[in-house]
Amino acid sequence: MLEIHDLHAAINGKEILKGINLTIRPGEIHALMGQNGAGKSTLSHVLVGHPAYEVTQGSITFNGKDLLSLKPEERAHEGLFLSFQQPVEIPGVSMVNFMRAALNAKRKYWGQDPMNAADFLKLMREKRKVVELDSKLANRSVNEGFSGGEKKRNEIFQMAMLEPTLSILDETDSGLDVDALRIVAEGFNKLRTSETSALVITHYQRLLDYLRPDIVHVLLNGRIVKTGGPELATDIENRGFDWIKAEIGE
């Protein structure tokens, strides 16, 4: 599904990613761990095509397509979704208009007619339940005045609406209390199928307890230095990153 080969990327001329290799197959959940500044968020932003990052070397193939040649919106239509670490507030743009524009853009990309208003609102209602999102929030401006937990729930709600095949969760657990974390994680699990995959970026074990990743990677200094099974996340939770650094001689 996703193949990253020798990816180098820079922001403002400074190289952050220094040769990433990563393959994600359908149905797999990968966790990406690492200390602050290791390049985790950079990788997620490069994947979705943020214009501030420059890819200097390497390739990314997504479902057989050259991802780097696609615009951010085209990547979204192809099934890529990023749950933002800090979801953006957009005053004056209602959730309804925002989601309708997004959904219909995707339908147009795939040659489908726009969804009629009644069906759309019905879909909104259904998908809201996935993350127990209040109907009042859905009528408000995008993320405006939402609490931290509500914003993250709103991300998963949007994911439910757009049905991506590969979701990137960028520290979706940060700032969440136990209940909010459970709602978000359970919401995410409800959306899983054997065809959908995810790349979960996190510092903590507790989100992974819910999501049960198949593979765990450790990112250090712009490179994946260690890959293992779910037990690797437990090791990191208990022992930190220093032992990995020692292992690779840094």
């Binding site: 214009p51 979704f81 853009a105 995707k106 757009l162």
Partner: peptide, 21 residues
């Protein structure tokens, strides 16, 4: 960028922001 990540074209996203303003 947030809107583009959700699949809304740059042009449409600009329009929505101006309209909201």
């Amino acid at each position: 960028f947030y809107m583009r990540q959700r699949g809304i074209s740059l042009e449409e996203a600009r329009m929505l922001l101006k309209f909201a303003f």
